[in-house]
Design a protein around this nucleic acid. Structure first.
Lengths: 248, 248
DNA sequence: TCACTTCCTTGATCTGGGTCAAGGCGGCTC
DNA sequence: GAGCCGCCTTGACCCAGATCAAGGAAGTGA
């Protein structure tokens, strides 16, 4: 399963792809021949789920590859006693799929209404075999994914609650940030889901959001909307000075 | 970077590969033509490091791909204030490398004396481009890696200290387990390194090892050798009943 | 408009694991 | 074999974040 990319895809790749089907744009770059585009277009279909629905249960068969068109979903793993950890966040342009394996190690759940662009396993794996360019793009995406996952290990193992919440908000805001601030984003996760993603409890997430608001780092507009006038303030709270240096 | 595989490689893949150079065995399966074997053999070389040495600094150029021949190394990431998290464990037959990127996101450090089988980046990437079979094997390894990393996220985010230490010992023992017990393994990491891997402190690791010994789950022979008569006891402490069900 | 639900916030208290400090135990050197 | 050094263990205490508990706010349906 390949997912959780917190940077937006390159604009130069989207413009000549179909924007409603990001995998086409992501898998095939501008100088490719059209054959692969046509093949991808022919095998795709769309499906939507409501917020809160489960797309795939942990350990259940996974009969498709897909990319997120709109909305947000999570990947999670659970222990038998109910403890649960979200191990990946799926946002538009992210990819779902695990070539060569038929069942999902993770539960996939919609946290908002979500629409996927689906490819059946069989034809998609054939395309992978026949098109080195698509295959190598998938390898690249998997390795980016691995880097993002390892970065999250550092967060889970070593960061404080405040740093965790700040890092999460910063990652979301950067993904949607355009031009200059103030930056605004709608949280695609409930407090409970944020907690499950950050290895915290819902109460701690709530308290840290309140503290960040009182410290003037962010503003909250309703329950789901976060506004940040200066991403550097947030980066300073995230425990990661490198992240700060990379800001616009 | 692709690493941390806690299962031994398939015996059917090793027998006809050269055992001192596992990537050849891992990348090329029995029914492949010999050309790829020859190409891999031609480009390889060997290099060794002493325990405690740094192979690659965090953020430094990574000019090779490699597989571990013997010994143990770690991948780690650090925050600026010195907090550090090991994000991957490299044991014999594991692969190091990040096609398409020239610098390492992680520090790579030898925790015991270690020998690598090295491939220069250029020729290795050419081989990847020309040999779909080797490329698809690398994708498979990357995805296994991603699964292992996400499993570790569940450990870091949700398990107790006792469960973390038990899970770590179980993973090590399973990797070397053959036939029936009692199982014995030499820890490739110091207490400090184990702590850095599990998101704990050295004192907590030490205390949990003592408690597991007093509970009769493990025996310790010297500082580095762990003996476990019954892996099911350890699995019961690991918080993961599925792991227990999969034991021999 | 009122009951009901779901999700969030805030306060009070508890505790697992961190921190600080004091040895113990080889292995090495001279 | 004495002194030293690196690594590990153990004890005492502390604190960040978990847990428990009590509302608040916003939506929904009758």
């Amino acid at each position: 399963m390949v997912v959780m990319k917190l940077q937006p895809i390159s604009p130069s790749l989207t413009v000549n792809g179909c924007t409603d089907c990001p995998i086409r744009a992501r898998a095939v770059c501008a100088d490719c021949n059209d054959t692969e585009l046509v093949k991808l277009d022919k095998m795709k279909s769309y499906k939507s789920w409501k917020a809160g629905e489960t797309l795939v249960h942990e350990g259940a068969p996974l009969e498709f590859a897909a990319s997120i068109v709109s909305g947000c979903a999570t990947l999670s793993r659970s222990l038998e006693d109910g403890r649960r950890q979200i191990v990946g966040l799926l946002l538009p342009s992210d990819f779902i799929g695990r070539p060569g394996r038929t069942r999902s190690e993770y539960a996939i759940e919609a946290t908002t209404d979500v629409t996927l662009c689906l490819f059946r396993r069989g034809p998609f794996e054939t395309l992978l075999r026949e098109s080195p360019r698509v295959a190598s793009r998938l390898l690249e995406m998997s390795l980016d994914e691995l880097d993002a996952t390892r970065e999250w290990m550092l967060l889970l193992g070593r960061k404080t609650a405040r740093e965790k919440v700040s890092t999460f908000l910063l990652a979301l805001l950067r993904r949607t940030a355009t031009g200059v601030g103030p930056y605004r984003t709608d949280l695609p996760l409930s407090r409970e889901e944020i907690a499950t993603f950050l290895g915290l409890t819902i109460e701690t997430v709530s308290r840290q959001l309140t503290l960040l608001r009182k410290a003037g780092v962010i503003e909250l507009d309703g329950l789901r909307t976060v506004i940040c006038a200066d991403l550097h303030l947030l980066a300073a709270e995230s425990g990661d000075e490198v992240a700060e240096a990379l800001l616009p």
